[in-house]
């Protein structure tokens, strides 16, 4: 008997999760060994691991919130798998919605028709594959092409890198302004981002003036969590 929370679906998702952990652990060990060979200090490696882990806690919990959102519609195990491999809530929700509407199934209730569920499963899986296919079969060529794009000028290569980051950052900073026409509450994301930036500037001062070098690796996750905490009073004041 089909159910969106069938044990078989949990089994499938569980296997995927094991695969992800194995692959990540494999690359982690490999990179740590190589770091040693390159003369990167154990301290830096340890700090990188700790800081990246700390950095991931809040986004991971927000991904979990996405899993819960989708679970009301297609059960718990399937969104668990979709958001553990190459997923992001921003893709998965519209993909599931489109598949459901093609089957004439409402997104407001749990799916009970196995054919509708399998359509959603196929669409959510096939929709996300292009990046992975391109990386698996084309990464070497793409990287070769990028090296020749930067040319022999080393400084220009560095500037090109920085310009690429700034392109990404500017798109997301622009995004903060998308709701300003809604009035005061539309400014909440901007104020939160500013408070995060101010926290970061304070961390920068502490690192430079007071030589708190230990803070370097942890500044980003701490500022992010700090700004998320500040978003509670900011939202209360501005909405």
């Amino acid at each position: 008997m089909f159910s969106v929370n069938h044990p078989f679906l949990y089994l499938l998702s569980g296997l995927v999760v094991v695969f992800i952990i194995v692959q990540s652990a494999f690359f982690l060990v490999k990179a740590v060994k190589q770091a040693k060979k390159l003369g990167i200090s154990t301290d830096t490696v340890k700090k990188t691991i700790l800081s990246s882990s700390l950095f991931s806690v809040a986004p991971a919990v927000s991904i979990l919130v996405g899993v819960i959102t989708l679970s009301k519609f297609i059960g718990l195990p399937f969104p668990w798998y979709r958001l553990s491999v190459l997923g992001a809530v921003t893709y998965e929700l519209p993909a599931a919605t489109l598949a459901a509407s093609a089957m004439g199934v409402p997104v407001t209730e749990t799916v009970t028709d196995p054919a509708a569920f399998s359509t959603i499963a196929w669409v959510m899986s096939l929709g996300i594959l292009s990046g992975l296919i391109l990386v698996v079969f084309g990464l070497k060529k793409i990287q070769g092409g990028m090296v020749s794009l930067a040319g022999k000028d080393k400084r220009w290569g560095e500037i090109l890198q920085d310009a690429l980051f700034l392109g990404m950052i500017s798109a997301f900073v622009g995004l903060l302004f998308a709701n300003v026409r809604q009035g005061l509450s539309g400014f909440i994301p901007i104020v939160v981002a500013l408070s995060s930036a101010v926290l970061m500037a304070v961390c920068g001062l502490l690192i430079k003036k007071l030589k708190w070098t230990w803070l370097e690796q942890y500044a980003m996750p701490l500022c992010m969590l700090g700004a998320m905490a500040l978003s509670l009073p900011i939202t209360a004041l501005m909405s």
């Binding site: 809040a58 927000s62 909440i188 981002a193 995060s196 930036a197 500022c223 992010m224 700004a227 978003s231």
Partner: peptide, 10 residues
């Protein structure tokens, strides 16, 4: 709701 602003601000 404010994860992205908190992240991209810093």
């Amino acid at each position: 709701d404010n994860i992205l602003p908190a992240l991209f601000g810093a």
